[in-house]
Amino acid sequence: MVTVYTTGPDCIRCKMTKGVMTKKGLEFVEVDIRQNAAAREYVTEELGYSEAPVCVVEDGTGEDHWSGFRPDNISRLVTLTRSGE
């Protein structure tokens, strides 16, 4: 499971990230941090990011996350997903 923290529909990098994930068949949950104060605090205070999108891979480690449009990380997730099937 991947959570994509966005800043709403005007965020180009957010749109690109979600578009590539959708095209590659990755499932994700979107959370708009402009509408969710707890999520905004998590992204900025706990993870330390100041740019959207922020992608968090729910793998149990709490260590797999990144900020920005990262096609390399999206491709890595596709590989991990397919190897786990």
Score class of each variant (00 low, 15 high):
72 D>A: 09
66 W>K: 02
53 P>L: 05
35 Q>G: 06
3 T>A: 07
62 G>E: 07
63 E>C: 08
3 T>E: 03
50 S>P: 03
61 T>N: 11
20 V>T: 11
40 R>Y: 15
85 E>R: 15
21 M>L: 08
22 T>C: 01
44 T>C: 06
64 D>L: 05
85 E>C: 10
81 T>H: 09
48 G>A: 06
9 P>A: 15
62 G>K: 13
57 V>W: 08
12 I>K: 12
31 V>K: 15
46 E>G: 00
83 S>T: 02
16 M>I: 00
48 G>P: 13
40 R>W: 15
69 F>A: 06
8 G>I: 06
44 T>Y: 12
24 K>G: 03
77 L>E: 14
58 E>Q: 13
69 F>L: 05
73 N>G: 00
31 V>W: 15
66 W>V: 00
18 K>W: 04
37 A>S: 15
77 L>P: 01
76 R>P: 02
4 V>Y: 11
74 I>L: 02
20 V>E: 05
60 G>L: 10
1 M>A: 09
44 T>Q: 15
23 K>Q: 12
60 G>S: 10
38 A>P: 14
72 D>W: 01
68 G>L: 03
5 Y>S: 04
51 E>N: 14
1 M>E: 12
22 T>Q: 10
15 K>Y: 04
43 V>G: 07
12 I>W: 08
63 E>I: 02
73 N>D: 03
52 A>G: 12
6 T>W: 08
25 G>S: 07
67 S>D: 11
